[in-house]
Protein backbone atom coordinates (compact mmCIF):
# COMPACT_ATOMS: atom_id res chain seq x y z
CA UNK A 1 0.00 0.00 0.00
CA UNK A 2 2.75 2.45 0.96
CA UNK A 3 4.85 1.31 -1.98
CA UNK A 4 1.87 1.76 -4.30
CA UNK A 5 1.35 5.31 -3.05
CA UNK A 6 5.00 6.24 -3.60
CA UNK A 7 5.07 4.59 -7.04
CA UNK A 8 2.01 6.62 -7.99
CA UNK A 9 3.68 9.86 -6.92
CA UNK A 10 6.87 8.96 -8.77
CA UNK A 11 5.17 8.01 -12.05
CA UNK A 12 3.03 11.14 -12.14
CA UNK A 13 5.96 13.37 -11.19
CA UNK A 14 4.10 15.74 -8.90
CA UNK A 15 6.97 16.44 -6.50
CA UNK A 16 9.62 17.01 -9.21
CA UNK A 17 7.20 19.36 -10.91
CA UNK A 18 6.65 21.36 -7.70
CA UNK A 19 10.38 21.62 -6.97
CA UNK A 20 11.00 22.67 -10.56
CA UNK A 21 8.35 25.40 -10.33
CA UNK A 22 9.67 26.76 -7.04
CA UNK A 23 13.37 26.03 -7.72
CA UNK A 24 13.83 24.27 -4.37
CA UNK A 25 15.68 21.12 -5.45
CA UNK A 26 17.78 21.18 -2.28
CA UNK A 27 14.73 20.80 -0.07
CA UNK A 28 13.48 17.68 -1.79
CA UNK A 29 14.26 15.41 1.18
CA UNK A 30 11.99 17.60 3.31
CA UNK A 31 9.25 17.10 0.74
CA UNK A 32 9.73 13.35 1.16
CA UNK A 33 9.13 13.82 4.86
CA UNK A 34 6.03 15.89 4.13
CA UNK A 35 4.62 13.01 2.10
CA UNK A 36 5.54 10.40 4.71
CA UNK A 37 4.17 12.43 7.63
CA UNK A 38 1.03 13.24 5.65
CA UNK A 39 0.42 9.56 4.92
CA UNK A 40 0.97 8.58 8.57
CA UNK A 41 -1.14 11.49 9.82
CA UNK A 42 -3.96 10.57 7.45
CA UNK A 43 -3.85 6.96 8.60
CA UNK A 44 -3.94 7.96 12.27
CA UNK A 45 -6.76 10.41 11.58
CA UNK A 46 -8.89 7.81 9.88
CA UNK A 47 -8.24 5.14 12.52
CA UNK A 48 -8.49 7.20 15.72
CA UNK A 49 -11.10 9.83 14.72
CA UNK A 50 -9.62 12.78 16.63
CA UNK A 51 -11.77 15.92 16.97
CA UNK A 52 -10.19 19.37 17.31
CA UNK A 53 -13.18 21.72 17.80
CA UNK A 54 -11.62 24.62 15.91
CA UNK A 55 -13.12 27.16 13.53
CA UNK A 56 -14.57 25.88 10.27
CA UNK A 57 -12.53 28.42 8.27
CA UNK A 58 -9.43 26.24 8.63
CA UNK A 59 -11.10 23.91 6.16
CA UNK A 60 -10.68 26.56 3.41
CA UNK A 61 -6.85 26.26 3.05
CA UNK A 62 -7.06 22.52 3.67
CA UNK A 63 -9.65 22.13 0.91
CA UNK A 64 -7.63 24.31 -1.46
CA UNK A 65 -4.46 22.30 -0.83
CA UNK A 66 -6.27 18.98 -1.19
CA UNK A 67 -7.81 20.13 -4.46
CA UNK A 68 -4.51 21.44 -5.83
CA UNK A 69 -2.83 18.13 -5.08
CA UNK A 70 -5.57 16.08 -6.73
CA UNK A 71 -5.53 18.51 -9.67
CA UNK A 72 -1.80 17.97 -10.11
CA UNK A 73 -2.31 14.21 -9.96
CA UNK A 74 -5.00 14.48 -12.62
CA UNK A 75 -2.77 16.67 -14.81
CA UNK A 76 0.12 14.24 -14.34
CA UNK A 77 -2.11 11.37 -15.37
CA UNK A 78 -3.32 13.23 -18.48
CA UNK A 79 0.27 13.96 -19.39
CA UNK A 80 1.44 10.39 -18.77
CA UNK A 81 -1.23 9.17 -21.17
CA UNK A 82 0.13 11.50 -23.87
CA UNK A 83 -3.33 12.78 -24.75
CA UNK A 84 -2.55 16.31 -25.87
CA UNK A 85 0.32 15.83 -28.35
CA UNK A 86 -1.66 13.24 -30.27
CA UNK A 87 -4.93 15.16 -30.11
CA UNK A 88 -3.33 18.44 -31.18
CA UNK A 89 -1.56 16.75 -34.08
CA UNK A 90 -4.75 14.97 -35.18
CA UNK A 91 -7.01 18.00 -35.30
CA UNK A 92 -4.10 20.32 -36.20
CA UNK A 93 -4.44 22.94 -33.50
CA UNK A 94 -0.84 22.95 -32.24
CA UNK A 95 -1.12 26.66 -31.49
CA UNK A 96 -4.34 26.35 -29.52
CA UNK A 97 -3.50 23.59 -27.07
CA UNK A 98 -3.95 26.01 -24.18
CA UNK A 99 -7.63 26.35 -25.03
CA UNK A 100 -7.95 22.55 -24.97
CA UNK A 101 -6.23 22.42 -21.58
CA UNK A 102 -8.63 25.06 -20.33
CA UNK A 103 -11.51 22.79 -21.41
CA UNK A 104 -10.18 20.11 -19.08
CA UNK A 105 -9.39 22.53 -16.25
CA UNK A 106 -12.79 24.24 -16.36
CA UNK A 107 -14.45 20.84 -16.75
CA UNK A 108 -12.76 19.62 -13.57
CA UNK A 109 -13.86 22.70 -11.58
CA UNK A 110 -17.39 22.67 -12.95
CA UNK A 111 -17.83 18.92 -12.48
CA UNK A 112 -16.60 19.09 -8.93
CA UNK A 113 -18.74 22.10 -7.96
CA UNK A 114 -21.79 20.53 -9.60
CA UNK A 115 -21.23 17.33 -7.66
CA UNK A 116 -20.88 18.95 -4.22
CA UNK A 117 -23.60 21.55 -4.60
CA UNK A 118 -26.29 19.67 -6.51
CA UNK A 119 -25.57 16.08 -7.53
CA UNK A 120 -25.05 14.94 -3.91
CA UNK A 121 -28.66 15.82 -3.04
CA UNK A 122 -30.19 13.72 -5.80
Amino acid sequence: MGAGFVAFLVVLGVIPRLTQLTKTMKMIYLYEWAVVLGAVGGTLGSLRDPIFHTTAFITVPIGLAAGTFVGMLAAGLTEALNVFPILAKRIRVEDRIVILIMAIVIGKIAGSLFQWMYFIDQ
Binding site: V105, S112, L113, W116, M117
Partner: peptide, 25 residues
Protein backbone atom coordinates in the same frame (compact mmCIF):
# COMPACT_ATOMS: atom_id res chain seq x y z
CA UNK B 1 -22.58 19.30 2.79
CA UNK B 2 -19.22 20.72 4.01
CA UNK B 3 -19.11 23.33 1.21
CA UNK B 4 -16.58 25.48 3.08
CA UNK B 5 -14.11 22.67 2.43
CA UNK B 6 -15.43 21.58 -0.93
CA UNK B 7 -15.63 24.84 -2.86
CA UNK B 8 -11.94 25.71 -2.27
CA UNK B 9 -11.19 22.08 -3.08
CA UNK B 10 -12.94 22.40 -6.44
CA UNK B 11 -11.00 25.54 -7.40
CA UNK B 12 -7.82 23.90 -6.13
CA UNK B 13 -8.35 21.16 -8.71
CA UNK B 14 -8.12 23.69 -11.53
CA UNK B 15 -5.22 25.51 -9.87
CA UNK B 16 -3.26 22.27 -9.52
CA UNK B 17 -3.70 21.42 -13.20
CA UNK B 18 -2.65 24.91 -14.28
CA UNK B 19 0.40 24.74 -12.00
CA UNK B 20 1.36 21.40 -13.44
CA UNK B 21 1.10 22.59 -17.02
CA UNK B 22 2.73 25.92 -16.17
CA UNK B 23 0.23 27.96 -18.07
CA UNK B 24 -1.87 30.64 -16.55
CA UNK B 25 -3.99 31.03 -19.62
Amino acid sequence: KPLLLQIPYSFGLGLGMILFFNHFF
